[in-house]
Design a protein around this nucleic acid. Structure first.
Lengths: 251, 251
DNA sequence: ATAGCTTCTTGACATTTATCAAGGCGCATG
DNA sequence: CATGCGCCTTGATAAATGTCAAGAAGCTAT
């Protein structure tokens, strides 16, 4: 992989990593040790960070920017999820010392912390609190994918879109407006539909109070969205509070 | 839940549980302690074992029989997966002390071991080897769901069927014949299609050497199936060896 | 054995979704 | 400023999938 610029983690970003559920309860010295072994790099947009099938050499942490996880089969490609700061990815592959099942690329200029897999596994073996956090994190991720699969199998395209919009609306402060963090082609793939169909789905929602202007969306009533999406607590996992990075930029 | 007959675990079955990756490395006395706290019950077919939204009071282990995990949204229902012996289910909910995201029902008369969640969590806290096994198990499960999601989003219905048949073929000894462990309606739901469409998919495959007689299938060439399914190691996770219970019954 | 049930299959049809093609719009670049 | 490019939208059409209905095959219970 090209070296786009290794640098040191700012104290502020370090604090954000430390506050992640995965690292919060870790022994202080061991956390510092992990960071010392890690690489912190900036990447431009549209850079492939990892490729499915490759060895899981690093646990990745998105510090800033937007990262897309996607998968391919022959010429087909599908977006699995889109990550925003601060989140880790491919933890499971790291722990199993296995190959990646998904590829990752940046969607915006991003800052990524890369922790060597072996260090993560060593830290888990030595630090019981970290091991517990890993269990909790994995269980949460697992449940996330299960929710996702339910979403895919039990909802129609329009319902998935309404659910996604409702979700983003809450994340971004529930102000009646939201902006799409990714382009519509990627969103379509993530929601399991074609770009053309996503356009039509948006056109449908327009009749129900959803105003679309490029990536900027305003909604008349989030209750309407819930109703269209057939809101279900066992599928939709709404964040307890708006995402910090959105609040920061749109205050 | 009705008590369909609590009884004690036979030594043979105990051994099979002990040999599961999840329990293999556990401290012997602690394993015995878990079993002592556990319930072992027989259930008739079509009994609901757990309901999504309910509290995860027990870790379940399928000792014998076939168990379906499914999810619902309003009146819709979708089969998420079908389990055969010996496997655990809803480990993630147990560890997070959360509600079930999926329901479970028996498809055949079954024997289920139910270990109280609190005991599992206590054992994890006290036994580092067990904690490691849990991490490994969760990571494996996570990767399983990811493969499943890739299967759903990157393959067409026919391709998913071909992949499923190839998978069952290997599990059952790769003899050129296999039998469906579940009825076709359930299989259709699991593969994300309607029963009618599954029938048509089978009709398509018939032209390519797949002979269907009720639940009994014979195939001309498993390579043909791989080709139709667009076999991909990063989606299809073939078992290293045939499933013991099939070999036992069909020798 | 047979009536009645369930499961599965098949055909006709409706709906949904994907594909192809064209054009508008905004944005970066020469 | 003009040009070209990528993104998005829209319409026409094709393909896939779902729905409805009917009937065949197999199983169960009386």
């Amino acid at each position: 992989m090209r070296d786009f610029g290794r640098e040191s983690l700012r104290a502020e970003d370090k604090k954000r990593v430390r506050e992640l559920a995965l690292f919060r309860d870790m022994d202080e010295a061991r956390f510092e040790g992990l960071l010392k072994a890690a690489f912190f790099q900036r990447f431009p947009e549209r850079v492939t960070l990892i490729q499915e099938g490759g060895a899981a050499d690093f646990l990745h942490v998105v510090i800033d920017g937007t990262v897309e996880l996607f998968a391919t089969l022959d010429k087909r490609e599908s977006t699995m999820t889109v990550l925003s700061p601060v989140s880790t990815f491919i933890l499971a592959a790291v722990l199993k010392d296995a190959v990646y099942l998904m590829s990752a690329r940046t969607r915006t200029p991003s800052q990524i912390l890369m922790i060597p897999s072996q260090n993560v596994r060593d830290a888990m073996a030595e630090d019981a609190a970290f091991a517990r956090s890993i269990v909790s994190e994995l269980a949460t991720c697992y449940r996330g994918v299960v929710r996702n699969q339910k979403n895919l199998k039990l909802r129609t395209g329009i319902e998935r879109l309404a659910s996604y919009l409702a979700h983003q609306h809450v994340r971004q402060g529930a102000s009646g407006a939201l902006s799409l963090p990714i382009d519509k082609k990627t969103l379509a793939s993530m929601l399991g539909m074609t770009p053309e169909n996503l356009s039509r789905a948006f056109a449908m929602l327009r009749k129900k109070g959803v105003n679309v202007n490029g990536p900027e969306i305003t909604i008349k009533s989030s209750d309407d969205l819930f109703e269209i999406a057939r809101f279900a607590p066992l599928i939709d996992n709404f964040p307890a509070e708006p995402l910090a990075s959105y609040v920061k930029h749109h205050k």
